[in-house]
Nucleic acid binder design. Structure first.
Length: 476
RNA sequence: GCCGGGAUAGCCUAGAGGCGAGGCGAGGGACUGCAGAUCCCUUCCACCCGGGUUCAAAUCCCGGUCCCGGCUCCA
């Protein structure tokens, strides 16, 4: 079945057809590394992570590129404030970003091009624009002449006249027109600088993405993504640069994520209403954060609140419990020599839920809708287990495999499917469980409870069921 | 001013002309020595307001109200 993607360029959902059979080339705008990433960043990168995972799950080879802006005005400014060397500051926060993303189980990009590693490519790109007559050198830098590019505004739907009228664009000393933007900034005293045909300086913000994306993904590729706030001017300017340079359409599908909101306002550094990923990870399992993000469609604004995170936590707990129920039931499951009513019902329900899951994901990666199907299976399998004495292995396996696929796409249940063996720790726990069972038989409940309590503190939860005592590791 | 996005039961989220969605929370019941997990039932059938189109609208159209975002650095 075909995937449909909402394309910001056309403002509608379109059938996804990659330029090359079986391969998806995607570029996601990475961060400017001058501070700790917050939940807003996490939201965007988790969203694109799931999109990427889903495409891979569907069998595509995905070439994923994400840039690092490791030299820029903000970095210089911050470095001046802290007295740190801009290079070191950028390096530090770049590492922190990578660590945080890893902790959030965001799959790493295939290439993380850094601006400072691509100066020659960037300079060549600017040169080409100059040769083609789209760029000119001013007193303080090289600029892109916006009005020479016919299609300017096609992504953001902004008209050039309005832009100039709005007077929001800075006139700037070296510019011919107020709407022009910098491709190369000549260095002021004390600023970091690189050699170029226009003297020492550094690249403008937009040119890096045009240069580095085409270097790794070619002069046209499938998906370019980022936060909503990048549509204008960043992505609009990228289009202008790239299409002016290449002379043909550049990116096929533009995808943008909605903001993370706090009390009705965008989470941002300037408002000071942000929660860093680190802080959050101290208090919550990364999968809780992922589920929190996935409960809302990626294009819609997502409201942050403690309560919202708690919701996600409860939801995740429920899914983990179901997984645990299946795992335990597997031990007493039997081969299906016949199916009865409950088996047929469970099978059909799981089959339908799986279909719904894929339909939802195919429809512009509707994770919120897809999650409904996940909870349906959770419910179905739990009910099945209460209905039958001896569960059939094939039914449990169907549910189990479904959760495994969901986990792969959403980046959930990872520990669960991975962490099974842990040396003889398991045997020790089993021993304690046996001892406790004996104590319970003898009605020595206080001692039995003590064992349960102490194990709970160690992260092992015991549960007494009609089939005997089972234990699980508490993940959330 | 110019472009966008919203308003869904106590809460969080989907959906998008007719089978009234999923989760959380709350209450009750089953099972338990207790706890936990799970299941069943209930939460008195929700879609900002006012018009219109239609046999039928939360969903389409018109007009409002309120909220948010972009137009300047931003994921």
């Amino acid at each position: 079945m075909a995937i449909r993607i909402y394309n910001t360029l056309t403002r509608q959902k379109e059938e996804f057809k990659p330029l090359r059979e079986g391969e998806v080339r995607m570029y996601v705008c990475g961060p400017t590394v001058y501070d700790y990433p917050h939940l807003g960043h996490a939201r965007t990168y988790i969203a694109f992570d799931v999109i990427r995972r889903y495409l891979e799950h569907k069998g595509y080879t995905v070439l994923m590129v994400m840039n690092f802006t490791d030299i820029d005005d903000k970095i210089i400014k911050r470095a001046n404030e802290t007295g740190e060397d801009p290079k070191e500051l950028a390096e530090r926060f770049l590492r922190i970003f990578l660590e945080d993303m890893k902790a959030l189980k965001v799959k790493p990009a295939d290439v993380y091009p850094r601006v400072t590693e691509h100066m020659d490519d960037i300079i060549n790109f600017v040169k080409k624009l100059q040769e083609k007559g789209y760029a000119y050198e001013g007193s303080d830098g090289v600029y892109f002449e916006v009005r020479k590019f016919r299609d300017y505004g096609k992504l953001s739907k902004i008209k050039l006249e309005d832009l100039v009228k709005g007077a929001r664009v800075e006139p700037g000393e070296g510019k011919r027109n107020p709407e022009d933007f910098a491709l190369w900034k000549k260095a002021k005293p004390g600023e970091p600088k690189w050699e170029s045909p226009w003297g020492e300086g550094r690249p403008g913000w937009h040119i890096e993405c045009s240069t580095m994306s085409s270097k790794y993904l070619g002069e046209s590729f499938d998906i370019h993504g980022g936060g909503n706030d990048l549509i204008f001017p960043h992505h609009e300017n990228e289009i202008a640069q790239s299409e002016a340079c290449f002379g043909h359409e550049w990116v096929h599908y533009w995808m943008h994520t909605g903001f993370l909101m706090v009390n009705g306002e965008k989470m941002s550094k300037s408002l000071g209403n942000f929660v860093t990923v680190r802080e959050l990870l101290k208090r919550y399992n990364p999968e809780v954060i992922r589920l929190f993000v996935l409960q809302r469609h990626y294009r819609s604004p997502l409201d942050y609140s403690e309560e919202g995170i708690e919701h996600a936590k409860n939801n995740l707990e429920r899914l983990y419990n179901t997984l645990e129920n299946i795992r335990v039931a597997m031990k007493r499951a039997e081969i299906s020599f016949r199916w009865d009513e409950p088996e047929f019902r469970a099978y059909e329900a799981i089959r339908d839920a799986r279909r719904k899951f894929y339909e939802a994901m195919d429809d512009d990666f509707n994770t919120a809708e897809a999650l409904k199907a996940v909870f349906e299976v959770s419910n179905v399998v739990n009910r099945y287990l209460t209905e039958v004495e001896k569960p059939k292995e094939s039914i449990l396996r169907k549910a189990w495999e479904f959760f495994k696929d969901v986990g792969e796409v959403f980046g959930l249940f990872e520990d669960y499917f991975k962490e099974q063996k842990a040396g003889n720790e398991e045997e020790l726990i089993n021993l304690l469980v046996e001892v406790r069972a004996q104590l319970r038989k003898e009605k020595k409940f206080d001692l039995a409870d003590k064992i349960r309590e102490e194990l709970r503190k160690l992260g092992i939860q015991l549960e007494d069921t009609p089939q005997g005592t089972v234990w699980k590791r508490v993940k959330v």
